[in-house]
């Protein structure tokens, strides 16, 4: 399968002086296949979000190379990449419609084309009847859908989702997961999702990359072998339990490490 994003020995350090330098991430080697749904899970502070920012071009890698469709990423976000963040990034001063069409302005598209794309995106995320409303009138989940729609209208080939459902309740999360799966099939885009929910990772992904405690590296990359046409009903299948328990086996030790309790626990046992 065609590789869309290639990470080669990517590392990230924070701090400039040698003594204060913090090794946050890497080295990471990863090939994202075109059109796949790839999820990264890892203990908190392992550098997941840093990795996503590097892939997005929002933050530089300290070492190594990131290629998007064969071209190196550096400094700017390449055309064709869309990002949805965990925090609510809707613009409160614009209507839902204007929020969604925000990125289309100044791209030389005609008014009719902008309208068509925004209408389509509104429809995809189920917000057509809220088009004239303002984000303040929407729930958290709906605002996150506004942000997803704002990304979709740009027709990205790679969508980066940085814990987009982190602030939502469990039921909404599951349904949003179904929605993302539907959008993923409808758009044919590659999705890179970051989450701390093992269930979410197991449910949504073709492959799950499990990261170690800081400095984050991939401990394992788990293939789920789910059919492309899937939804949250997978959660009741036996294989789903196998995948999540496998993920948890990999992650448990690392999560303890990241909490700084591994040594204490080992002494106790």
């Amino acid at each position: 399968m065609e590789t869309q994003v290639a990470l080669r020995s990517v590392e990230r350090y924070f701090g400039t002086t040698k003594r204060a330098r913090l090794h946050a991430l890497g080295p990471i080697d990863l090939d994202l296949r075109k059109g796949e749904f790839f999820t990264i899970v890892g203990p908190s502070g392992c550098g997941k979000s840093t990795l996503l920012e590097i892939v997005a071009g929002l933050s530089p890698a300290s070492a190594g190379e990131v290629l998007f469709e064969g071209r190196p990423i550096g400094g700017v976000v390449p055309d064709g990449i869309g990002v949805v963040f965990q925090e609510d990034a809707s613009f409160p001063w614009l209507t839902v419609r204007d929020n969604i069409g925000f990125g289309l302005q100044g791209r030389g598209l005609g008014g009719r084309e902008v309208r068509r794309r925004v209408d389509h995106a509104l429809d995809l995320v189920g917000l057509s009847q809220f088009a004239a409303g303002y984000p303040a009138q929407l729930s958290g989940g709906m605002r996150q859908r506004v942000c997803i729609a704002r990304t979709l209208v740009l027709e990205p080939r790679l969508i980066l989702l940085d814990e987009p459902f982190g602030a939502l309740d469990q039921q909404t999360r599951l349904l949003m997961g179904d929605e993302v799966l539907r959008l993923w099939r409808a758009t044919g885009a590659t999705i890179l999702l970051i989450t701390h929910s093992l269930d979410e990772a197991a449910l949504l992904s073709d492959r799950v990359g499990v990261m170690s405690a800081r400095p984050g590296r991939f401990l394992d990359i788990v293939e789920t072998h789910w059919p492309r046409d899937r939804d949250s009903r997978l959660a009741s299948e036996a294989e789903f339990g196998d995948v999540t328990s496998h993920l948890w086996r990999l992650l448990r030790e690392e999560s303890l490490k990241s909490m700084g309790v591994d040594a204490a626990l080992r002494r106790a046992s």
Binding site: L58, V76, D79, V83, F85, A89, G106
Partner: peptide, 18 residues
Amino acid sequence: IPRVLVKTARVLRLGGVA
């Protein structure tokens, strides 16, 4: 100003003035 809005500007590839 929430940092995420400024990050969003970069993702949408807006220039400084925009």
